[in-house]
Design a protein around this nucleic acid. Sequence first.
DNA 1: AGTAATCGTGAAGGCCGTTCACGGAAGTTG
DNA 2: CAACTTCCGTGAACGGCCTTCACGATTACT
Lengths: 238, 238
Amino acid sequence: MNPVDPARDRRGRAAPAGRARGRPATVESIVGAGRALLRQGRAVTLRAVATELGCTAPALYRYIDGAAALGELLSEDVFVEVVGELTAAGEPYGEDDPAARLVAAATAFRGWALDNRAEFRLVFGAARGGGSGAEPFAGPLGGVLTRLVRQWPPPGPEGAEPDGALAAWAQLYGIVALEVFGHVRPRLIRSGALFRAVMREVGARAGAAGDGDRLAEVSREVLARRALTGRAVPAPGG
Amino acid sequence: MNPVDPARDRRGRAAPAGRARGRPATVESIVGAGRALLRQGRAVTLRAVATELGCTAPALYRYIDGAAALGELLSEDVFVEVVGELTAAGEPYGEDDPAARLVAAATAFRGWALDNRAEFRLVFGAARGGGSGAEPFAGPLGGVLTRLVRQWPPPGPEGAEPDGALAAWAQLYGIVALEVFGHVRPRLIRSGALFRAVMREVGARAGAAGDGDRLAEVSREVLARRALTGRAVPAPGG
DNA sequence: AGTAATCGTGAAGGCCGTTCACGGAAGTTG
DNA sequence: CAACTTCCGTGAACGGCCTTCACGATTACT
């Protein structure tokens, strides 16, 4: 609803076919430019996006419903990327090994968050409503964690209560958010001690108590794979 | 360092005594006006603060080093308030009952956060550095959680490893942040199910395993006391 | 060819933070 | 008292932000 319907005109008229074909691509290019700014740590403003695209800010209003809508689009874009990375990280480990899958996804989540702090803030930071009103846009998705759990269900022991999954992700979210937001000593982040402690508990929650060594190995593997794809994260095994 | 030293002039000269007396009060009034805006959910801008005080924005620069500095002052102000509330919440329970104290403080923390979302975001939201650059100011305190643990040490079983306290607070932070930031279904927040689940684990971590009923009672008591002081929070015991 | 729709532009308004020269008020000093 | 110094708030101004608007040029359809 927030992005302009690509098949229809502002006033509800059907858009001519020849023109409509080019439009969705432009919305994509706007989001792409926004992601590029995000990646470079630059401020994501309509002007900056427009400049990146070689036009002026008002032009974006033909495709996007303002800065808040751009925030939602970016947030959605980042979210599917995260889910993709979590899924990919868990895939090497069989469905018969839920603890390994969970640890792999959690490790990937932390690695991604530390590498893409601006994106993490956008999606997992403060959402709108009751805020100080100062934020230009803020994570709009209703219940990111709810959606995350739905799309990447960390398996419990067997048919563990569904809230168990949510609680596990909540614990993981807490530790990662603290690290990304800078609320714990940097030394603690670099050492990864806090994360490893949480990892042990989450592993235990997934029914792999006492299997710490194997899960630590899984975590290392995920980090090694991330490093291969050009990403880097301070090794927690230091 | 960030606020102008009240005893000294901008250029380092000693300020006349008669004048200096009025000045610290003015810095306080600025912070007070900022907190009022925060409380009302209005945007905390220099202009708004100045208007609240009956002057113009440039006037504030005589006392405050800009918007970022105001953010730091506000953050600090809120932080000591939180520590005070946590301490007060834990006080009724004796030092021989660490689990009760921890649960009481945690319940108070959640209640405060849900009642003062803007303040929570300011202090416990994204800190500066590597951000999208859009935020006018963001929690500046180095390691809020580190400081919180230092000032409000949740006691472990006996001499549990110090990281245990940090981990417990991290778990609590995660669940509260998820709720305040709107990343879980509102129904789940209202029911308090997630928080209660976390509370059980935190209680167990503090060495009171299997004592769930008593700790739930402690939680209820804290909420009742909060309600008496004019605050309200959706009762988790619904 | 003529008409209609699309789309980018510059100008403008309103908000923000910030800097600056100015002038009035208050204090200190002779 | 008078003269001087210091403080301190102001309005103007600059740049940046989001957003709206009328306009003109380009494009597509008939």
